[in-house]
Simulated scan of single mutants.
Amino acid sequence: MQQLDFAIIDAHIHQWNPYTTPHAAALAVKLLGKHPYLLDKMVRMVNADDLIETVGLTNHVTAPYLPENYVQDIGHYQVEQVVHVEAGWHKNKGKGVIDETHFIESLPFNVETVKLGGIVATADPRDSNFKKILQLHKKASPRFKGIRKMAAVHEDKEIRAWADEPHLYCNKKFLKGFEAIAQNNLTFDAWVYSTQLSDVIALAKQFPETSIVLDHFGTPAGLFGHVGALTGLTKVARENILVRWQEDIAELASCPNVYTKMSGLFMPVLGHQFHKQNRLASKQEVYDLAFPLISHVLQHFGSYRVMFASNFPMDKVSTSLVNIIDAFSDAVVACDASALERIFHHNAKQFYRL
Results as ranks from 00 to 15, higher is better:
Leu136Ile: 07
Phe274Pro: 00
His346Val: 15
Glu86Thr: 13
His226Ala: 13
Ala331Pro: 05
Leu242Trp: 15
Ala250Asp: 05
Met262Asp: 02
Val213Gly: 03
His137Trp: 11
Trp16Tyr: 11
Ala290Asp: 04
Ser106Cys: 06
His60Lys: 04
Glu251Ala: 14
Arg353Cys: 13
Ile9Ser: 04
Pro108Phe: 11
His84Arg: 11
Ala161Tyr: 05
Ala204Arg: 01
Ser303Val: 15
Cys170His: 11
Glu251Phe: 03
Ala26Leu: 07
Ala253His: 04
Gln72Trp: 03
Phe344Lys: 12
Phe274Thr: 11
Lys95Gly: 11
Ile52Cys: 06
His137Gln: 11
Ser254Pro: 00
Glu251Trp: 04
Leu270Glu: 06
Thr187Tyr: 08
Phe312Ser: 06
Lys235Gly: 14
Ala327Gly: 07
Lys316Leu: 09
Asp326Gly: 07
Ala290Phe: 02
Leu214Glu: 05
Gln246Cys: 09
Asn257Gln: 14
Gly177Lys: 03
Leu39Met: 08
Tyr65Arg: 08
Asp199Lys: 09
Asn240Trp: 06
Lys138Asp: 13
Gln196Ala: 09
Thr187Asn: 11
Ile294Glu: 06
Phe351Arg: 04
Leu197Phe: 02
Val82Trp: 00
Thr113Trp: 07
Ser329Tyr: 10
His84Thr: 13
Leu107Thr: 07
Phe351Gly: 02
Arg353Ile: 07
Ile324Glu: 06
Arg143Gly: 03
Pro268Met: 03
Pro268Phe: 03
Thr219His: 00
Leu242Pro: 02
Phe109Val: 10
Gln15Lys: 01
Asp326Ile: 05
Lys34Glu: 13
His84Ala: 12
His60Arg: 04
Pro313Gly: 08
Cys170Gly: 10
His300Phe: 09
Lys205Asn: 10
Gln78Lys: 15
Val97Thr: 13
Ala24Pro: 07
Phe188Ser: 09
His12Pro: 09
Leu340Val: 14
Val306Met: 13
Gly75Trp: 05
Gly96Leu: 06
Phe103Ile: 08
His275Met: 03
Val286Ile: 14
Arg305Lys: 15
Lys149Ser: 12
Val297Leu: 14
Phe217Tyr: 10
Gly177Asn: 03
Gln277Glu: 15
His300Asn: 12
Lys93Ile: 15
Glu112His: 15
Ala190Met: 03
Lys131Phe: 08
Leu51Gly: 05
His296Gln: 14
Glu179Met: 05
Glu155Cys: 00
Thr231Val: 04
Asn184Cys: 09
Leu252Ala: 07
Gln277Cys: 06
Tyr352Phe: 13
Ala161Cys: 12
His345Leu: 11
Phe130Leu: 09
Asp5Ile: 00
Val29Arg: 01
Ala28Val: 09
Leu223Arg: 02
Ala221Cys: 08
Val97Ala: 10
Val306Pro: 03
His90Ser: 15
Arg279Val: 09
Ala63Trp: 00
Leu27Ala: 14
Ser128Gln: 13
Asn347Arg: 10
Thr20Trp: 00
His167Asp: 11
Pro18Arg: 02
His84Ser: 12
